[in-house]
Computed example of a mutant assay.
Amino acid sequence: MTITPIEKLFTIFDESAEVLQEELGCTYLEALAATGENLFQAEILQDNVNDLTKKRLRKKYEEVTLASFSPEEIRKAYQLALLKGTKHHVQPNHQMTPDSIGHMISYFTGKFLNKRTDLTMMDPAVGTGNLLSTIINGHNDNINIQAYGVEVDDLLLKLAYVGASLQEQRVEFFYQDALEPLFIDPVDAVICDLPVGYYPNDEQAKSYELNSTDGHAYAHHLIMEQSIKHTVHGGYLFFLIPNGLFESKEAPKLHEYLQKNVHIQGIIQLPLSLFKDEQAAKSLMILQKKMPGLKAPKEVLLASLPKLSNKDALNKMLAGMEKWFKENKE
């Protein structure tokens, strides 16, 4: 049976991470970050491993040459290892965005940003970096991307940094709470799988228009506001939002804020089959930051995607979207 390049590289990530996990007494994910960095630097960076372990690791690393893999093959192999490591240890907001959703967002970023050759992009809740990497790889051939990722969890940030390094992507990472002041110039595009929940820092929330008047503010509302502030006028934002975003008691305030600052370009409901249950279902909301002379689309792109396995329905839907782009964006 032929082993694919992705399987071959995953095996190296996985087996070398297990060796380090045992030797260092750390978690699988910590060991994965360490082994990824070893592979990238082409040396064993851990001082506290014995000579026998170093020998075992070198033997494994010598089985592959990173330069012989495409960035997308590296991303997928690394993602498989991440999925193995996150199975038991991760809270809901840290779950990786599924590839099917990542590729779909990549399609829409391509449609809305297709006239650019250089692009700055930010993910304010970057997690392990898989969504950002998927989108960068999707545009590798035609757009030169400088990206920024913000993450408050140091292990997730380390994993994102190692993944981007292995794929040789131009990403600058910031280890901080994305709702504190960001030292990032406004970007052309924001992409974010919004972490949904309450924001515990009431003091920091006071600096936001979308702060709640009663109790903790919603973190996802504040991240939307922060992202809009950090987008250039005329730039785009691609948010994965919960389907019930506009049903909460804070929804009228959010709606008013969006009306004032952005044009809603589209809301695409994702197939329910992509989610464990209906409560977790999401949609993609596409916004464009207002600027003088910029008109809203004649009509908002509203769609409910069929099951991705239903090729006929999907092709029909994509044809309808192409028509919308011709009428509204060209």
Rank of each mutant, 00 (worst) to 15 (best):
L20P: 04
P124V: 08
Q288W: 12
D123Y: 11
K55H: 12
A303M: 14
P186K: 07
K298M: 06
K158F: 01
V171Q: 02
I135Y: 09
P186W: 01
Q169I: 09
K158E: 13
A319L: 14
L29M: 14
G235S: 05
A160V: 06
V196M: 04
G85R: 07
L113Y: 14
Y218S: 02
D154W: 05
F174Q: 10
L287Y: 04
A125Y: 05
F325N: 12
Q95G: 00
K249I: 10
Y107A: 02
G215F: 02
L302H: 14
T117G: 05
R170M: 03
D202G: 00
L159G: 04
K115A: 12
M122Q: 12
L39N: 03
L240H: 01
C26T: 14
D153G: 03
A77D: 08
S248Y: 03
L131C: 10
K329T: 14
L29H: 12
V64T: 12
Y61P: 00
N144S: 15
V300S: 06
Y257C: 06
Y148V: 01
L9W: 11
K289H: 07
N48P: 01
I105G: 09
P306N: 11
N142D: 12
F238S: 11
T128S: 15
F10C: 02
Q95N: 14
M321K: 09
M1F: 05
S283G: 07
H263Y: 12
A178E: 01
L308G: 11
T4Y: 03
D177G: 08
W324F: 04
I223L: 15
H220D: 14
S207N: 05
P195H: 09
A178N: 05
L39S: 06
E43K: 15
V152G: 01
Q169L: 11
K115I: 10
D193L: 02
V162F: 02
S309D: 14
N50W: 00
